[in-house]
């Protein structure tokens, strides 16, 4: 399955993006949109799948330095 994802940034001040993903985008995962990195907040299906393509909206928020540190920390723990 190929996931065609429309990434929309919370607040609407930063342009979102569209890209194909090989894996289903999961809340909490990070994604690069343009030069910036964002965290996925939630994911919805926009329209029914067609053949091997699934069409999704993902709402994202900017990743802060604190987020990065806590993510690194949790990765070390697990």
């Amino acid at each position: 399955m190929i996931y065609k994802v429309s990434y929309v940034v919370q607040g609407g001040e930063y342009p979102g993006g569209i890209k194909n993903e090989e894996v289903y985008p999961q809340p909490g995962a990070h994604v690069k949109i343009g030069p910036m990195t964002f965290e996925i907040v939630e994911v919805h299906e926009i329209i029914p799948p067609r053949d091997d393509f699934q069409f999704l909206h993902a709402t994202v928020k900017p990743v802060t330095e604190d987020d990065r540190k806590s993510k690194k920390k949790s990765q070390k723990v697990t």
Partner: peptide, 8 residues
């Protein structure tokens, strides 16, 4: 306006 990645 938008960023477009792989497959677009």
């Amino acid at each position: 306006a938008v960023y477009l990645g792989a497959g677009q």
